[in-house]
């Protein structure tokens, strides 16, 4: 379970990215964070990934109050969280395989396990045949699938995605969303920040709208599950 209690994040004196935000995401839920640019979606994800600390309030994940974690505990917590960004954040000098296996390597896992698990997730995202390619040789959709494979390779409990389809065309966006739905079906809690209302409608999950760092009101889950196209 993810819970924020009265969380505010200020940059400067009066510039609030989040203001007194209280929300709850149940374990295994798939939730969209939506809103216009500057609404606070990315800031919330950054707080959940502990890239930043809230100015006030509490962020609780499972039984952990994130504000109390020591640097080593932060690293241990991050091992339970997968992340996907709009700009993919792949290492251009490493191959697809190396980009994914890199996570397991820096977590000190044995080479054989790195190899096995990496091929497994690359197969799952449909990129096992491109394992020797470099990121810049791939299409945007393929790069994002590599990023998803990297986020998944350590079997996270939570998946955070910040505008994961922002650089992709509608077909590829649906492809990526399908992957997130499958990830969620496996029991992983998924939080996707997006302003793509069509996509949200198509996936049909709970939406937490944000505006100027606040929730104007929770929206009910849409009933439609029809594909967009």
């Amino acid at each position: 379970m993810i819970e924020t209690i009265g969380v505010s994040k200020a940059y400067g004196r009066e510039e609030y990215a989040l203001q007194d935000l209280t929300l709850k995401v149940e374990k295994g839920e798939f939730v969209f964070l939506t809103g216009p640019s500057g609404a606070g979606k990315s800031t919330l994800l950054r707080l959940l990934l502990l890239q930043e600390r809230p100015t006030s309030g509490q962020v609780v994940v499972g039984d952990r109050d994130l504000s109390t974690l020591t640097p080593n505990e932060i690293q241990a917590y991050r091992r339970t969280v997968g992340f996907v960004f709009q700009d993919f954040k792949l290492i251009p000098t490493k191959t697809v395989f190396e980009n994914v296996a890199f996570v397991l390597r820096v977590l000190g896992q044995p080479v054989e396990q790195q190899r096995r698990r990496t091929y497994q997730v690359l197969k799952w995202v449909g990129l096992q045949h491109r394992h020797n390619a470099y990121p810049l040789e791939l299409s945007g959709g393929e790069q994002q699938r590599v990023a998803i494979a990297r986020a998944l390779v350590n079997e996270p409990h939570i998946m955070l995605a910040d505008e994961p389809t922002g650089n992709l065309d509608p077909d590829l966006s649906i492809e990526i969303m399908n992957l997130f739905r499958e990830i969620n079906a496996g029991g992983t809690t998924v939080l996707v920040a997006t302003h793509d209302r069509e996509l949200i409608k198509w996936v049909g999950r709970r939406v937490i709208p944000l505006d100027h760092g606040r929730i104007p009101g929770s929206s009910p889950a849409p009933s439609s599950m029809e594909p967009l196209l």
Partner: peptide
């Protein structure tokens, strides 16, 4: 990336 994936 290392920091975000929780590398020691």
């Amino acid at each position: 990336i290392m920091a975000l994936v929780g590398a020691p």
